[in-house]
């Protein structure tokens, strides 16, 4: 079930990154919002990873190169604008992906039909913040522009077909390329000009190649379980 692993790892890793905001978010409401989104993703990850094997073993005992998430979701939170840009890019992708899976008959249809309704709220949240920051002050505009530019090169990987995920990937890509640029335009932001795929882009997460910050992230995520195997409370 390599497909369950790929989709499950996307949800798990992004959930952990969003959880890192707990205690650090700019306002209490946002802290709660990001934690709630993280919780939705964690629930999805648990179901997906359970399709692939034992959820705890997969989450806590795999080495970095065994993770199959896209590199976008492992990128550090950065400032709030970076987190929102990552959410904007990923939630648009995940919603289109789940919409297609939900309308199919495959193993992911049940989960996708449920999760797509949750992700609609994640996307709504990301779009509203993109508009507020992009069309806000000079400072917030500049930071939001930097964030969407900086993460752009990680978006090409989202459209690389995953073996066992039986959807129309071309339709997913064109749907994403309609929705995301439209939000950026409304937010008075400039669509990044760099390539999404090819030489100067990133993306081999699906093959187990990850960026440097990911190693530190899973060290933190796994250390308790590895230090105290089988611990419970």
């Amino acid at each position: 079930m390599s497909a369950a692993l790929a989709l499950g790892d996307d949800a798990l890793v992004l959930s952990h990154r969003l959880g890192e905001w707990a205690g650090h978010a700019p306002v209490l409401e946002e802290e709660v919002a990001l934690a709630n989104i993280a919780l939705d993703l964690l629930g999805q990850a648990r179901i997906l990873l359970s399709l692939a094997g034992d959820e705890d073993e997969l989450a806590y005992l795999r080495e970095e190169r065994a993770f199959r998430n896209v590199q976008l979701v492992e990128q550090p939170n950065g400032d709030f604008a970076h987190t929102i840009a990552r959410q904007l890019y990923f939630s648009a992708y995940q919603r289109l992906l789940y919409e297609q899976l939900a309308s199919g008959e495959g193993a992911f249809a049940g989960l996708a039909a449920k999760a797509v309704k949750e992700v609609a709220y994640h996307q709504d949240h990301a779009e509203h913040w993109t508009l507020r920051l992009g069309d806000g002050t000079d400072e917030s505009h500049d930071r939001m522009q930097r964030a969407v530019d900086g993460l752009w090169r990680f978006t090409g990987e989202l459209f690389e077909p995953v073996e066992g995920v039986d959807i129309d990937w071309q339709a997913l890509r064109s749907g994403w390329l309609e929705s995301v640029p439209a939000v950026l335009e409304r937010a008075t932001l400039t669509l990044p000009t760099g390539p999404q795929s090819g030489a100067w882009t990133a993306g081999a997460g699906r093959q187990g190649i990850h960026t440097e910050p990911f190693g530190r992230m899973i060290a933190e995520m796994q250390h308790l379980h590895r230090s105290h195997p089988g611990a419970s409370w």
């Binding site: 919002a33 709630n36 949750e118 709504d124 949240h125 509203h128």
Partner: peptide, 12 residues
């Protein structure tokens, strides 16, 4: 005030 509140199923 916020799309997410004390639990995932509520807004504030």
């Amino acid at each position: 005030l916020s799309r997410f509140s004390s639990t995932a199923c509520k807004a504030l």
